[in-house]
């Protein structure tokens, strides 16, 4: 049913998908041949590296990924060490960002919170990209029955908004304080990946359908190449760039959704350290009035992380899109 509707509710990326379709470059001045010979990739790199937003997002991502991998580099404090005597103490002195409700150090907990967010975002983006690319290639390349079945299936999964579906799945799979860290993470990843793959599927399927009738593919088939080889050496290289762009933007969106689910008390569960949980605990009215630092710092880190990935994806998309030049 969403076949022709160009935009669906929480699909934040259809705009991206539409923009990435190859468009002929129009040059009123009869461009000389040698300019056309430059590859799209080299051109895109040239454009990207001149944009400050590209370097800002790269720098932010490097910082946050380092934070996720080695939080010890940023703080020597133990995020689990809490002293109720310090509860809600405002920033200053020993604690850069102050203390939270239980008297834990907000700075240390914010630093350690990066790991869950980035892990969930990365794993979900990878999972959806993998499933979406594989199924999209199958549907787009073989057409017919497999395509019809996969596309209707994608329609069904796509028809359930990410957050609503995530609530149902996570409510059913609900854990508690005893759930191991990775299981807790994987549940959230599963919930979002189950509902998120149609995005990439649709993108990949339409790319493949666009590339397939090209003459170099026909030639390769005429020469007797097997489908696997045609897909691997002709179709993938020509359709993977948009998938990477959308997956990058998605990564940011998944981090935001994970935080939202955790905020609602249904995503990650304490004692896992997560920005969403921290913000949820800090967002009571009385706390906002008296101890806004508990809210501000995790919120800032969360927003910057999401921003970094979305911004990177957009800069790459703009660079790849000849229409915007």
């Amino acid at each position: 049913m969403t076949d022709n509707a160009p935009f669906a509710a929480d699909d934040v990326l259809d705009e991206t998908a539409a923009d990435l379709r190859p468009a002929p470059t129009v040059n009123p001045t009869a461009a000389p041949e040698q300019e056309k010979a430059r590859s799209l990739g080299a051109d895109a790199w040239d454009i990207m590296r001149r944009r400050p937003l590209f370097w800002i997002s790269i720098a932010l991502i490097v910082v946050f990924v380092t934070m996720a991998v080695a939080p010890g580099l940023f703080t020597s404090k133990d995020p689990y060490f809490c002293d109720l005597n310090n509860a809600r103490v405002t920033p200053g002195g020993d604690a850069l960002f102050g203390y939270d409700l239980q008297g834990c150090d907000v700075y240390a907990r914010t630093i350690y919170g990066a790991r869950s967010s980035i892990l969930v975002g990365l794993l979900t983006a990878l999972a959806t990209a993998l499933i979406g690319t594989m199924l999209g290639t199958l549907g787009g390349y073989f057409g017919g029955v497999p395509d019809a079945v996969l596309s209707r299936l994608a329609d069904v999964f796509f028809s359930i908004p990410l957050l609503l579906g995530g609530i149902i799945i996570l409510y059913t799979l609900r854990g508690d304080g005893e759930t191991p860290y990775f299981v807790s993470i994987l549940k959230v990843v599963l919930a979002m990946a189950v509902l998120g793959w149609p995005n990439i599927y649709r993108l990949m399927r339409s790319s493949v359908i666009q590339v397939k009738p090209n003459e170099f593919v026909l030639a390769s088939r005429a020469l007797g190449a097997k489908p696997g080889r045609i897909i691997g050496s002709h179709i993938m290289p020509n359709s993977i760039a948009p998938v990477i762009v959308v997956a990058t933007i998605d990564l940011g969106a998944y981090i935001a959704t994970e935080a939202t689910l955790s905020f609602l008390g249904i995503g990650l569960q304490a004692p896992v350290i997560s920005w969403g949980i921290a913000i949820s605990q800090a967002s009571g009215l009385g706390y906002i009035r008296n101890a806004p630092h508990m809210l501000l710092f995790p919120a800032l880190f969360l927003s910057l992380t999401v921003l970094a990935f979305i911004m990177l994806g957009e800069v790459v998309r703009d660079a790849l899109d000849p229409k915007l030049r």
């Binding site: 905020f263 919120a299 927003s303 979305i310 911004m311």
Partner: peptide, 12 residues
């Protein structure tokens, strides 16, 4: 920027 800030952060 608005897209990057989750709704619950904007709300709070």
């Amino acid at each position: 920027v608005v897209i990057s800030i989750p709704v619950f952060v904007i709300g709070s």
